[in-house]
Simulated scan of single mutants.
Amino acid sequence: MKIDLTDTTSSKINNALVQGRRAIGTPAIGMVLTLVIVTDEEHAYDALKAANEASREHPSRKLVVIKRVSRSPRNRAAARLDAEVRVGTSAGTGETVVLRLYGEVIDHAQSVVLPLLLPDAPVVVWWPVTSPLDPERDPLGALAQRRVTDTYAAEEPVSELTARAANYAPGDTDLAWTRITPWRSMLAAALDQQPGIKVTGAEVEGEDCNPSGELLAMWLADRLGVPARRTVSEGPGLTAVRLETKDGVITLERTDGALARLSMKGHPDRAVALKRRDTAELLAEELRRLDPDTVYASTLKYGVERLAAAAPAPAPRAAAAPQAKEPAEAEPAPAPSKKAAPKKAAK
């Protein structure tokens, strides 16, 4: 069921939610959290689709905040709030309210969202594309216990990690970090199979400007206390991790984005499932825990700059010896320069 409201208020939206639940015969729905999605019109459909799929595991009230900013400051639209209220099958598991903000209402988005939050339930704010520099100090982020961003969507993903580290607050997380959960689990399990083994170095291979690769390298350097370097491949995504030990190299390699091969000395090679996950799976994982992620915080604060400084420099290439020229090709000696003769002083 869908109810359209034009030039409305938060109070009318709440009434529409009650009306919708009564119409479909479910006056009480066991929702566990409120998910606030801050996006633009272009990415709203994909973000809401991912949230609806994640709501099968986490029934929630989804509030999609779309700020309709005018391209010309002189032609700023009049203050207005439009809404779409969806309940039933079109809203996934739970309820959905799409909020479109115009004019001065954009500057007070938190005042619109606050009356629509579920009482006594956690609040999660997710920025699928563009996120604020400091999520905790953002007016909408201040309402949440958990703030989800995606560094991969930034214009300069690796530089964005530095900003995330500088402005980190407990409750912040990043889908670029969530993407490497299977890699971290697999590498930890591989080291558990060889207790007492000492790792002396690490290498993470993947696409250029992939923040997940940087985070994985920082995690290895932070947890193992070894230099970790980043190398570039054609992808897709992360393609390999190599851990250097005195007994050989432990390699976890994935070339097709789906199936990986784990190789280590003394054990047969193993094929392991390591597929690239979609946004809905990543979001569902982040909604499973709402407490601060201390491992992410420690990894993030390790720093991209420190990672680059700790990585061993590549060996310099030997310069090619200059070849002697053939006598016939010898360059002629330069002719002596002719200087102008000094003029005689006039008598």
Rank of each mutant, 00 (worst) to 15 (best):
G237L: 12
E244T: 14
T231C: 05
T151W: 00
A165W: 02
Q193R: 15
Q194T: 15
D208A: 14
E205C: 07
R223P: 00
S233C: 12
E205A: 13
L224W: 07
T151C: 03
Y168W: 15
L133R: 11
V249A: 14
V129P: 00
P195I: 10
T178R: 13
E136I: 02
T200V: 11
E244N: 09
P170A: 08
E203M: 12
D138E: 13
D134P: 00
D208E: 14
E244W: 03
A176E: 02
R146V: 06
A202D: 09
V241Q: 03
T245C: 10
R146P: 02
R230M: 07
A188P: 00
I250E: 04
D174S: 11
T239P: 03
D134K: 03
T231P: 00
L220V: 05
E136S: 13
C209N: 13
R184T: 12
L175Y: 05
S233H: 09
V232C: 03
E155K: 09
S212Q: 06
R230K: 11
V241T: 13
Q193F: 07
N210T: 01
D192S: 14
N210E: 15
L187Q: 06
S131R: 02
A153I: 00
M218G: 04
T245V: 08
L187D: 06
E214P: 00
T245G: 10
L215P: 06
V129K: 02
T162N: 08
R164D: 12
I180A: 08
L143E: 02
A176F: 03
T149Q: 07
T162F: 05
D172H: 15
E203H: 01
A169N: 06
P195C: 12
S159E: 08
N167G: 01
G196V: 04
P170I: 09
D247G: 03
S131I: 00
T245H: 11
E160S: 15
Y152D: 04
V158E: 08
L215W: 05
R179E: 13
E214D: 11
C209H: 12
D222E: 15
W177V: 07
L224T: 08
D208W: 09
V204M: 12
A165G: 06
E136L: 12
I250Q: 06
L140R: 00
Y152H: 07
V232H: 04
V199L: 08
A190K: 04
Q194C: 04
D138Q: 07
G196S: 04
A190D: 13
D222S: 15
D150Y: 03
P211R: 05
E155I: 09
I197D: 04
Q145S: 12
S212E: 06
